[in-house]
């Protein structure tokens, strides 16, 4: 059973043929083709991916995720989207969602994870034992103003050693990213997004250990198959591959 720890949903997403309605069923079917039986979903908004959502937009996005995970509890695992700029209200939203069963927190690009605004979330995440999936990318072009780099994730990891942080997008972080987060054992990395560049996963496993690497796709913007090929085509032992595809996810999500 493979866990895809990085998938997005949203009411604005159409069915694959462009017609109105949820793509949630099709996303499950397409994932299952490859043996992906569980997907960790978050919504970055119902009007598209919202970089600076309002509090109401965050709540609506999270309601949608919880709706899907309630409808398909055997498949979808809900993560709640939070914007640290909502300050106190962010923690209220976190508690509302954790009471309703979210298994993780998704942070995107509204605020660098090294910003003190994020500290209360990282603290509370540790208390609730929820992993924090933080988008991160080291871009040579197009870095957003508040987009976290691997150095930001490393800084957050240093300040919050007990919090499980998953830095998203290994291919976007590269070797520099792996080296930045290596000293913090509770900081993990996911494989989602970016091209299926050969060799980088092996580099991450060598420097972090397979225990700190998780499979994720970033579907629907990416293809499950292409992203899974990063793992199935890599030079790994069967034990390492199992950790990346499901073992680490079960440990972190306490399933």
């Amino acid at each position: 059973m493979i866990y895809d720890t990085h998938v997005h949903v949203g009411r604005a997403m159409r069915r694959f043929d462009g017609s109105a309605g949820e793509a949630a069923e099709e996303m499950m079917a397409r994932a299952r083709l490859h043996g992906i039986e569980r997907q960790c979903i978050s919504s970055l908004g119902n009007r598209g991916y919202l970089a600076y959502p309002t509090l109401a937009e965050v709540r609506e996005a999270n309601d949608h995720v919880l709706e899907l995970s309630t409808a398909h509890p055997e498949h979808y695992l809900p993560f709640c989207y939070l914007d640290p700029r909502h300050e106190g209200a962010t923690l209220d939203e976190l508690h509302r969602c954790s009471d309703r069963g979210v298994v993780g927190i998704k942070l995107w690009v509204s605020c660098k994870v090294s910003d003190p605004l994020v500290d209360p979330i990282l603290e509370r995440a540790a208390a609730l034992r929820l992993p924090v999936l933080q988008h991160a990318w080291n871009k040579s072009v197009g870095q957003r103003e508040h987009e976290s780099t691997s150095a930001d994730v490393a800084e957050a990891g240093r300040r919050h050693p007990g919090t499980c942080i998953i830095a998203a997008h290994l291919m976007g972080l590269g070797c520099r990213g792996v080296l930045d987060i290596a000293p913090m054992p509770d900081v993990h990395v996911d494989l989602s997004g970016g091209d299926p560049e050969a060799g980088i996963l092996e580099y991450a496993v060598r420097h972090l250990g397979a225990e700190r690497v998780l499979f994720g796709s970033d579907a629907p913007g990416r293809s499950y198959g292409v992203q899974l090929g990063k793992v199935l085509g890599a030079d790994l032992t069967p034990g390492q591959r199992d950790l990346i595809l499901w073992g680490n996810a079960e440990r972190i999500l306490r399933l």
Binding site: L33, P196, G225, G233
Partner: peptide, 18 residues
């Protein structure tokens, strides 16, 4: 796009296309 990209990805992409 080998050897820059993983060959397995190119093949699983085909599978996903049914």
């Amino acid at each position: 796009h080998a050897p820059l990209f993983n060959v397995r990805s190119a093949l699983l992409k085909l599978d996903e296309g049914l």
